[in-house]
Nucleic acid binder design. Structure first.
Length: 961
RNA sequence: GCCCAGAUGGUGGAAUUGGUAGACACGAGGGACUUAAAAUCCCUUGGCCAGUGAUGGCCGUACGGGUUCGAUUCCCGUUCCGGGCACCA
C-alpha cells in the first residue's frame, strides 16, 4: 500500500473532530498537565511556516504527556484586539470586528490542516464580550485595591479608608504615587471628591497626570515596552513626552515579588536576566541635604553611600519641583532659558546626542558628612522619574558626573587609593577608600571610611546614616507603572463613567460593558479618542444601562470613559480563562483553577519578555492576592521558540553601463535584461535582485517560471553555468518584500502535515533562530515513506506467519529509540529524536523485521510527531481506539546492555589505543589484557603503561617496566 | 559601558555532559535499475600528506594559554556574532 498522506490526513482530521478526541474535562482522578502557546494576533497575512513552529513543539509535548497518562489541557485562542485591524478600518471603513472574524477563520483553517491536538471547545477571543467581561472585572478590582508593603499583598481599598479614619497616614507603609501626610481628623474633614483624589494616590489601577510616551502618528500613548530607541515599536514613528491624564497600573508595587518569583520558575537564564534588567532593582540610601542659608532640604538617592566625602556638587532633574524652589533670583533668567531648551528636546534627541548641558541654580547644599556647601546644578542627565529626581555628584567615581564636572570646571576628589582619574572616572566598586575624610581637613563629624574596602564603606555609611537620622536605606526599581489608556477604538472599553470629574465604576453586575458602535474610527475633531464618535456612550445610573449621549445631565446620566485598554490587557489572564472559558459567574471557578493550577509549559517568542510576560505575571500575582488564582506564578516552564527566518534567493542582472565593450553581451541585452548565474557573477557588473523562492528549487532557478513571474522578465536572457541558472541566497527576515515567504498550506498540500511537523522540528533546536530551507523537506518526507513501508511489510508478513518473539537486535533498536525519544522530549530537543527514528527504521528494515511487537510501540512513539500516520497504522494494527489513548512504551535497560566495554590504554600521558572487553570483566582480566597489549612492540618502544581507563567510569593504575 | 547567551564541514546541526568529533539530513559527486524520466536503492563527501591498493600518518570544534592519561565539553585571557538594559545615580 502506498503512503497516501492526503487521504490519511483528511480522514483523521475529520475523525478527531467527530469523536472530540481532544476535548478535555477536569478529572480529579487523573494528573493534569497544562500546555499553552502564546495565542496569536490574527493578522491579515495568514500563517507562514514560522508561526506553527512553537505550536508543533508544544503539541508534541502535549501528546507525549497524554500518552503518559496525563489529562492534558492544550487550548488555543486569539488575541483579537490590535492596531492593524483598526488601521485597516480607518482606511476602508470596514469594521474591525469583521476583518478580525475573517482573519480568524483563515487562521483556523490553516491550523486545522497541521493536525494539532487543541481543545477548540475552550477557544477564547479577547474581543468577545464574554471574555473581556473579566478583563474589565479585573481592572475594577485593581481600582478597588491598594498594595500593602507590610503584608506584601494587595488589599481592598476599604482597609485603607479604615486606616485613614483611625490614624490618617501615620504608620502607613503602602505603595503610592507620592508620599502624603495627613491626620485622621484632616481625612474626615475632606469632602467626597477630595477623598477620591487622595485614594487615587494608592489604588492599583489609578488615574494620574503623568509624563507619557505620546506617539502623534498613531494618535495614542504607548507603554515603555512599546517604545524602542525613542520610536514606536509598531511602525517606528517618533514618540514624544507629553503630560496627560491616563489610567495606570501600579506594577511597580509588585517589583520585588516579580523579581523574587523569577527564582521559582523554570525559564531560560537570558529571559530571566532580561526581566531582572527591566525591573532594575538597586539598593542604596536616601540621604537628606539641607540647603544653605535656608530651612529647606531635599533628599537624594545613591547606591554609592561610600562616596559622601567626594561630593563636589548636586544636580536636579529639570522637571523636578525643587528647581523652582531652589533657583535664586540672580539665576532665574538662566534657569528659565535652560528649562525652555530642555522642553524642546524629544526622547529621541536625548538618546541620539548626549552633550553635557546644565545650569547653576544659585543655591548650595550642605553635605552632612563634610559640612561643605556644594553648588546645586540643574541638568537633563538627571531623570525626574527615578529615585528622587536629585543626585549628589561624585565626579571621581561616576562617569556622568565626571563629564559634567570637566565641562563646567567643577572640582574632582578621588576617594580610592591609587586610582587614576586624570582621563576618566573610576567607576569600579573595588579598592580601598581614602580621603574620607581628607587628611589635613578637620573632620566635620566623627566618622571615617579610610582603609575600608568599598563594600565595607557602603555598609558602614548606610549604618551611620540610619543611626544619625540623616536619611534611610532604600531600594529603588527601574520598573515603572504601566500606562493603561489607549486613544483607540479597537480595544476593551473601560467600565468607567465620570461624575464631578472623578471616575466611577460601572456596577460589577452590569459587566461586560460592550464596545459601542462608531461611524468613524479616527479621533474626533476636538481630539478626543475614537469612542468620542459614539452616539450612544453614556451611563444611566438609574436604569444601569448604556444610553444615548443626549441624555447626559450629570445628575443621573454621565459620560463614559473614551479611552480603551491596551493590547496587553486581554492577554494578561487568558490562561486562567481557558480553564473555565464558559463561566459567566467568575473569571475562573476555584474548582477549575485548583485542578489546572498554572501553566506547566508555556511556549512563545522572547519578544514578549518585557511586555506580556511581565504584565501577566503582575496580573496573576494580583489575582493570587485576591484568591482567584491559586498559583503565584502563572507559567512554570517557559520555552522561547526561535524565529524562523526566510532564505531569500537572488538573481544577478548585468548592468548595462559595464557592457559597452562586450559585443556578445550587447547583443543579448538588445533582446531583454541579462541575468548571470551566481558562480559567474564576479566577472560582470551586476545588481542582485530578490526572486520569489517558490520558483527556485535547490538554488536552481526555474527559468520558464521566472519569465512568467513578471512581464518585464518575459524576454530575459541568461548566462548559465553547467546548463543551469544558480541563484545566490541570504538569510533574512521572512517577509513579503523579500519574496521569501513560505506558506504552510503549500507544504501540507505537497508533502502532508506530518512531513511539515517533522521537518519543522528537524530544522534545529526549537529555541534557536534558524532559516527555513525548503530544500531539505524531502528528507523528512522520505523518512515517513520508509517508515510507512516498513510498517506495511511488518503488518503484511505478520498476518501470514505465526507471531514470534522479537530478536535481541530488534529489541535493541526499539529500546534505543524509546530511550532517546523519551529523553529528548523531556528536554524539548526534538531535532535529535527524529534522526533516532530514521536510524531505527533503517536498522529494522535491514533486520527484515516482521514483528508487530516492535512496530506497535514505534507507532506510539511517533504519534506525537506525526499523528496522522500513527493513527492510520494504529488502526491497521487492529486497534479501535485512537492512538492518543495508548500507553507510552517503557524503556528497559536490559535490552541495551552492551556485551563489551571499551578500555582505553594510556602510555606516559597519551592515550594510545582501546580494546573491547566483556562487560563483566574484572580488573585482573583487564590488567592481563593490558599487559598482553604491551607486548605489541608498536605501542611499546620502551615506554610503560601508567593507566588503564575503562569507559565510562572505571580506572585502574598499572605500573610496569 | 554593564549584563546574558553563543562560535563545530559547502549547509542545518549531532556528540551518552570529560572518553575514538562531525550522528542524521540537505547539498555535491559517482553508480545500479529504466528506452527515458520520475521514484527507489547503493557508494564517496572536514583538510593535508604517503600508497596501485586495502590502508596508514599528520592537522582539525573562533584564537591563545591552563587542568587532565584524555578537553567541542572544565578554568583563565582574547576576538567575533546575537540578545537585553542603558545618562537608572
Amino acid at each position: 500500500m502506498e503512503y497516501n498522506f492526503r487521504d490519511i490526513e483528511k480522514k483523521w482530521q475529520q475523525r478527531w473532530v467527530a469523536a472530540q478526541t481532544y476535548k478535555v474535562t477536569e478529572d480529579e482522578n487523573r494528573k493534569k498537565f497544562y500546555v499553552l502557546n502564546m495565542f496569536p494576533y490574527p493578522s491579515g497575512a495568514g500563517l507562514h511556516v514560522g508561526h506553527p513552529l512553537g505550536y508543533i513543539a508544544s503539541d508534541i509535548y502535549a501528546r507525549y504527556k497524554r500518552l503518559q497518562g496525563f489529562n492534558v489541557l492544550n487550548p488555543m485562542g486569539y488575541d483579537a484586539y490590535g492596531l492593524p485591524a483598526e488601521q485597516y478600518a480607518i482606511q476602508t471603513g470596514q469594521h474591525p470586528a469583521i476583518t478580525t472574524e475573517q482573519n480568524i477563520a483563515r487562521y483556523r483553517e490553516q491550523l486545522d490542516k497541521i493536525g494539532f491536538s487543541f481543545d477548540w471547545s475552550r477557544e477564547v477571543r479577547t474581543c468577545d464580550p464574554q471574555y473581556y467581561h473579566w478583563t474589565q472585572w479585573a481592572f475594577q478590582r485593581m481600582f478597588g485595591s491598594f498594595y500593602c508593603n507590610t503584608c506584601h499583598k494587595a488589599q481592598t481599598i476599604e482597609k485603607l479608608i479604615e486606616h485613614f479614619e483611625k490614624q490618617g497616614t501615620a504608620d502607613l507603609d503602602v505603595a503610592q504615587t507620592e508620599e502624603l501626610s495627613f491626620t485622621a481628623d484632616e481625612w474626615r474633614a475632606k469632602n467626597d471628591v477630595e477623598k477620591q483624589q487622595v485614594l487615587m494616590n494608592y489604588r492599583l489601577a489609578y488615574l494620574a497626570e503623568t509624563m507619557v510616551n505620546w506617539c502623534p502618528a498613531l494618535g495614542t500613548v504607548l507603554a515603555n515596552d512599546e517604545v524602542v530607541n525613542g520610536v514606536s515599536e509598531r511602525g517606528g514613528y517618533p514618540v514624544e513626552q507629553k503630560r496627560m491624564k491616563q489610567w495606570c497600573l501600579r506594577v511597580s508595587a509588585y517589583a520585588q515579588r516579580l523579581l523574587d518569583g523569577l527564582d521559582t520558575i523554570d525559564w531560560t537564564d537570558s529571559l530571566k536576566e532580561t526581566q531582572r534588567n527591566w525591573i532594575g532593582r538597586s539598593e542604596g540610601a536616601e540621604i537628606v541635604f539641607k540647603v544653605k542659608d535656608s530651612d529647606k532640604s531635599f533628599t537624594i538617592f545613591t547606591t554609592r553611600a561610600d562616596t559622601m566625602f567626594g561630593v563636589t556638587f548636586m544636580v536636579l532633574a529639570p522637571e523636578s519641583e525643587l528647581v523652582q524652589e531652589l533657583t535664586t533670583a540672580e539665576q532665574r533668567a538662566a534657569v528659565d532659558e535652560y528649562l525652555a531648551y530642555v522642553k524642546k528636546r524629544t526622547e529621541r534627541d536625548r538618546i541620539s546626542d548626549r552633550k553635557v548641558t546644565g545650569v547653576f541654580s544659585g543655591s548650595y547644599a550642605i553635605n552632612p558628612f563634610t559640612g561643605e556647601a556644594n553648588p546645586i546644578w540643574i541638568s537633563e542627565y538627571v531623570l525626574a522619574g527615578y529615585g528622587t529626581g536629585a543626585i549628589m555628584a561624585v565626579p571621581a567615581h561616576d562617569s556622568r558626573d565626571y563629564a559634567f564636572a570637566k565641562h563646567f570646571g567643577l572640582p574632582i576628589v578621588p576617594l580610592v587609593e591609587g586610582c587614576d582619574i586624570s582621563e576618566e572616572s573610576f567607576d569600579a566598586k573595588e579598592g580601598i577608600v581614602c580621603n574620607s575624610p581628607r587628611t589635613g581637613v578637620t573632620p566635620y563629624i566623627d566618622f571615617s571610611l579610610n582603609g575600608l574596602t568599598i563594600k565595607e564603606a557602603i555598609a558602614a555609611t548606610k549604618k551611620y546614616v540610619r543611626e544619625h537620622n540623616l536619611g534611610r536605606v532604600k531600594v529603588n526599581y527601574r520598573l515603572r507603572d504601566a500606562i493603561f489608556s489607549r486613544q483607540r477604538y479597537w480595544g476593551e472599553p473601560f467600565p468607567v463613567y465620570y461624575k464631578d470629574g472623578m471616575p466611577q465604576m460601572v456596577p460589577e453586575e452590569c459587566l461586560p460593558l460592550e464596545l459601542p458602535e462608531v461611524d468613524k474610527f479616527l479621533p474626533t475633531e476636538t481630539g478626543e479618542p475614537p469612542l468620542g464618535n459614539a452616539k450612544r456612550w453614556a451611563w444611566d445610573t438609574k436604569t444601569k444601562t448604556v444610553v444615548d449621549n443626549s441624555a447626559i445631565d450629570n445628575v443621573t446620566v454621565f459620560p463614559l470613559e473614551l479611552n480603551t485598554m491596551p493590547g496587553f490587557a486581554g492577554s494578561s489572564a487568558y490562561y486562567l480563562r481557558y480553564m473555565d472559558p464558559k463561566n459567566d459567574e467568575a473569571l475562573v471557578s476555584s474548582k477549575a483553577d485548583n485542578y489546572w493550577q498554572s501553566v506547566d509549559l508555556y511556549v512563545g517568542g522572547s519578544e514578549h519578555a518585557t511586555g506580556h510576560l511581565i504584565y501577566s505575571r503582575f496580573w496573576n500575582k494580583f489575582l493570587f492576592d485576591l484568591g482567584v488564582s491559586c498559583k503565584e506564578e502563572p507559567f512554570q516552564k517557559l520555552v522561547n521558540q526561535g524565529m524562523i527566518q526566510g532564505r531569500s534567493n537572488f538573481v544577478y542582472r548585468i548592468n548595462t553601463e559595464g557592457a559597452e565593450n562586450n559585443a556578445e553581451l550587447k547583443e543579448m541585452m538588445a533582446k531583454g535584461p541579462v541575468f548571470v548565474s551566481a558562480g559567474l557573477k564576479d566577472q560582470y557588473d551586476v545588481t542582485p535582485l530578490h526572486v520569489d523562492v517558490n520558483i527556485v528549487s535547490a538554488d536552481v532557478l526555474d527559468i520558464e517560471a521566472f519569465k512568467a513571474w513578471r512581464p518585464e522578465y518575459a524576454n530575459a536572457q541568461f548566462i548559465l553555468e553547467d546548463g543551469r541558472y544558480v541563484c545566490g541566497w541570504a538569510v533574512e527576515k521572512m517577509s513579503k518584500s523579500m519574496f521569501n515567504v513560505v506558506n504552510p498550506d503549500m507544504i501540507v498540500e505537497k508533502f502532508g502535515a506530518d512531513t511539515l511537523r517533522l521537518y519543522e522540528m528537524f530544522l534545529g533546536p526549537v529555541e534557536q533562530a534558524k532559516p527555513w530551507d525548503t530544500n531539505g523537506i524531502d528528507g523528512s518526507h522520505r523518512f515517513l515513506k520508509k517508515f510507512w513501508n516498513l510498517a506495511q511489510s511488518i503488518i503484511a508478513q505478520s498476518e501470514q506467519n505465526t507471531p514470534s518473539n522479537p530478536s535481541p537486535a530488534e529489541l535493541k533498536a526499539l529500546h534505543k529509540l524509546i530511550k532517546k525519544v523519551t529523553e529528548d522530549i523531556e528536554v524539548f530537543s526534538y531535532n535529535t529524536s527524529i534522526p533516532a527514528f530514521m536510524i531505527a527504521t533503517n536498522e529494522l528494515s535491514q533486520l527484515k523485521c516482521t514483528n508487530r511487537a516492535i512496530l506497535e510501540p514505534m507507532v506510539i512513539l511517533i504519534a506525537p510527531f506525526a499523528p496522522h500516520i500513527a493513527e492510520e497504522l494504529w488502526e491497521q494494527l487492529g486497534h479501535t481506539t485512537s492512538v492518543c489513548d495508548a500507553q507510552w512504551p517503557v524503556f528497559e535497560e536490559k535490552y541495551l546492555v552492551e556485551d563489551t566495554v571499551k578500555m582505553m590504554v594510556a602510555f606516559n600521558g597519551k592515550t594510545r589505543f582501546s580494546i573491547d572487553f566483556p562487560a563483566d570483566a574484572d580488573n585482573a582480566t583487564i590488567e592481563a589484557a593490558a599487559r598482553a597489549h604491551e607486548l605489541t612492540p608498536k605501542y611499546l618502544e620502551g615506554k610503560s603503561i601508567i593507566k588503564v581507563i575503562i569507559v565510562p567510569k572505571r580506572m585502574i593504575n598499572i605500573v610496569m617496566k
